[in-house]
């Protein structure tokens, strides 16, 4: 059995790996990789194969759901007392929640006999795209500005009192 520290490390890399392939296969739902020669790069030909990107996107969604369930459970069981979500953490959580809900509805739509109104499908498609752009943009900002998902509650109190004092 893995140690808790190792579990955190594995889950972090799994999260990054999942998001990477979700983004790649998600953009692959649009016919852009062939047009812009990206699928011509050796090893990336699969990006122009819509059924493959579709399947990989589903696999990524499965992994993301697992990772999210792990983090939510872990946060409330282990870290709720000592750690607090930052603004960055809240923002990214909300974006991922939005992606999950819109993605879930888009998956449901893909079954036979499920009919969502045309306007709703367009709204969901655009929502899904805008939310992933927000996640990418904010993720990059968090990386550059070193914004973390959580802070220690004690550290935050200390910092706040220093700032006020």
């Amino acid at each position: 059995m893995t140690t808790p520290a190792k579990a955190d490390s594995v889950s972090r890399y799994l999260y990054l790996f999942t998001v990477f392939f979700l983004v790649l296969s998600g953009f692959g739902q649009m016919p852009i990789f062939k047009r812009y020669y990206i699928a011509d790069i050796p090893g990336l030909g699969w990006l122009a194969k819509f059924y493959i990107t579709h399947y990989i996107h589903y696999l990524g969604a499965i992994l993301l759901l697992g990772v999210c369930a792990y983090y939510i459970t872990d946060y409330f069981m282990f870290n709720f007392k000592n750690k607090k979500l930052t603004f960055s953490g809240y923002f990214k959580t909300a974006v991922i929640a939005g992606l999950t809900v819109s993605g879930f509805l888009l998956i449901i739509k893909n079954f036979a006999d499920y009919h969502l109104p045309g306007g709703l499908i367009i709204f969901l498609d655009l929502c899904h795209l805008i939310l992933v752009m927000l996640l990418l943009g904010f993720g990059l900002y968090s990386l550059i500005a070193k914004k973390r998902w959580t802070v220690n509650r004690q550290d935050k109190i200390k910092n706040d009192s220093q700032n006020n004092g």
């Binding site: 059995m1 893995t2 808790p4 579990a7 889950s11 059924y51 579709h54 399947y55 589903y58 696999l59 969604a61 499965i62 992994l63 759901l65 697992g66 990772v67 999210c68 369930a69 792990y70 983090y71 939510i72 459970t73 872990d74 069981m77 282990f78 998956i107 893909n110 079954f111």
Partner: peptide
């Protein structure tokens, strides 16, 4: 092929919870 893996989508969160419980 994609629609058939939907069951795994229902199982994945349970696996995530189990992994966190294992850590606990």
């Amino acid at each position: 092929s994609a629609n058939n893996i939907i069951t795994a989508m229902a199982i994945a969160p349970i696996a995530g919870v189990a992994f966190a419980a294992g850590k606990l």
